[in-house]
């Protein structure tokens, strides 16, 4: 105990930092715990009753939940694809080119990040209604909205990766008689790729998690967050916690897997040298 005490004294800031991190994990811990809650006995859904595997064995038991999950995943994947392509192209233009309107474009890309979601969502709804699409809100209007608010985040992520790139590597390639396409596909693209990948991951999580903008532009289509919202008025089925925990584990596996692959590649490169 005294050793722990002196460690804490010596590393005060680190200890406080870890405490903040623990605070950030309280809800995740509760969500994981509640995914094993047997709620069939009682109507009080905000208290742990007894342990069960049932929620994990029948995750799709609540009516409509897995359909909403499917909708969210399809929109998430399509929005990620669209926003990543559009955003990556824009990032290349902003870092590698000087063109008229560049600073205006920087501002336009910054604005969606500085606008409250409720304003963005409601303005898009106002547009759809004004254009006569008020009766056709659904999958496609949600997708359009998600691509819109993901683009800026993709640009920021890819741009910082691209700006930190050592241009000497590209010069070296052309010194070694690589033509422009070869240089791009064999040097530039592989180096920027991790940035594109993390941008795509960010875009998917933003799209998958969005509620405010989606809720305004969804018509009768129900995404997973909207299902949770609707269920919250009556009492959330415990399976929602299963999905929450599962998403967390899958994302963690992707991030850790990427990191391990990165280190292995770096090691391999070092060995090759």
């Amino acid at each position: 105990m005294t050793r722990l005490g002196s460690w804490i004294g010596k590393h005060l800031m680190l200890t406080l930092g870890i405490l903040v991190l623990l605070y950030m994990y309280i809800p995740n811990f509760i969500v994981a715990l509640m995914s094993f809650n047997d709620s069939s006995e009682s109507r009080n859904l905000y208290q742990f009753q007894s342990f069960t595997w049932d929620n994990w064995l029948n995750p799709c038991a609540p009516q409509g939940m897995c359909e909403s999950l499917r909708v969210s995943i399809s929109i998430g994947l399509l929005a990620t694809l669209g926003a990543t392509i559009i955003g990556t192209l824009a990032a290349f233009a902003l870092v590698r080119h000087r063109f008229e309107g560049r600073s205006t474009m920087n501002l336009v890309l910054f604005l969606p990040m500085a606008t409250p979601e409720i304003v963005m969502g409601s303005s898009l709804l106002a547009l759809f209604v004004a254009a006569g699409f008020g009766g056709q809100l659904g999958f496609w209007t949600i997708l359009i909205a998600h691509i819109m608010f993901c683009i800026s985040f993709v640009v920021v992520t890819v741009r910082s990766r691209l700006a930190g790139l050592d241009s000497n590597l590209e010069k070296a390639a052309s010194d070694l008689y690589a033509n422009e396409w070869q240089t791009f596909w064999r040097i530039t693209f592989p180096l920027v790729f991790p940035g594109i990948l993390s941008a795509a991951l960010l875009a998917f999580s933003l799209s998958f998690d969005d509620f405010i903008i989606t809720n305004l532009n969804s018509g009768t289509t129900v995404t997973f967050p909207m299902f949770v919202w609707g269920a919250a008025q009556r009492g959330v089925p415990m399976q929602v916690n299963v999905i929450g925990t599962l998403m967390f584990l899958v994302a963690l596996a992707i991030v850790i897997g990427g990191e391990v692959a990165n280190r292995r590649r770096a090691k391999g490169r070092a060995a090759a040298l």
Binding site: P27, V31, W229, V236, M247, V255
Partner: peptide
Amino acid sequence: APFFTSFLVRTLS
């Protein structure tokens, strides 16, 4: 990482 558990679910907890 906590981002990936839907924020509605976390807020409910």
